[in-house]
Amino acid sequence: MIALTLPEPPARRDPTDAAGPPETLIEPPGRWRWLPLAELWAYRDLCRMLAWRDVQVRYKQTALGVAWAVFQPLVLMGLFAVFFRRVAHVATGDVPYPLYAYAGLLPWFLFAGAVSAAANSLVDSERLITKVYFPRLVIPIGAAAVAVVDFLIAAAALVVLMLAYGSRPGWGGLLIPLAVGMIFLTALGVGSLLAALNVKYRDFRHALPFLIQAWMFATPTVYLSLDAGTELPDWLWATAHLNPLTGQIAFARAAMLGEPLPWAAFGVGSAVGAVLLAVGVIVFARVEDGFADAI
């Protein structure tokens, strides 16, 4: 028989309890509700730890580690340089085309990486979701944040490229965080929407890489200059601007390479991005109560 002689309890209570413990009310889910921003803020450490975990694990598990972040845009840069420059003769003004392509691919990979990480994050966190409570939005946020880390690493390669080509950044470089922030928020909106869909429809996972690839070619500024669009029919060019990435990527590249900043295109892209963020996050909040039952 196990002897249950319990040790004397230390007379210790958290001094923060003085204000009285917090109250929680658990009720059946309502139909639509506001985003629990205060709660998300309370769980900011979890967001950071999840992002940190994903970076750590990838670094420990893959031989190339963080080099992947640089490898992908560099390879595409090479391909683009051959096809768009040599074959299609795309004009990029004073900027050498490889540099130009890399500076467009960098923000694109930020978006694509954040969207795909966020979209798959919920399904991959099944064990957490069914065992512990926390605002579910921290999972796609944490997953998407990893793409920002990749972006910073790949940006180091951009600096090297710029030095190699003798290109110098301008004051616009100070606006890079703004561009990155807007791209991140747009990606978060799209990613959380896809994440919610992914829980319900598991075959969505297979459609995702294709969707992202198609989106890249539908974003002309990844491989063309914003002005090149003037050769396109007006309606097509207008449609391209409804794609938030068109303006955001043009702006990010201009900021990185010290070119004139396309404020108008960025404004349109950011407005569309904000709508996508709102839609994605609201849909997510609407269905998040069911994740533990559906996953």
Binding site: L25, I26, E27, P28, T130, Y133
Partner: peptide, 18 residues
């Protein structure tokens, strides 16, 4: 009670951290 899943009806009131 641990808020992992929502009830269909009724409610739970908690005082304190769970």
């Amino acid at each position: 009670v641990s808020r992992i899943t929502k009830p269909t009806a009724g409610r739970v009131r908690l005082r304190g951290r769970v």
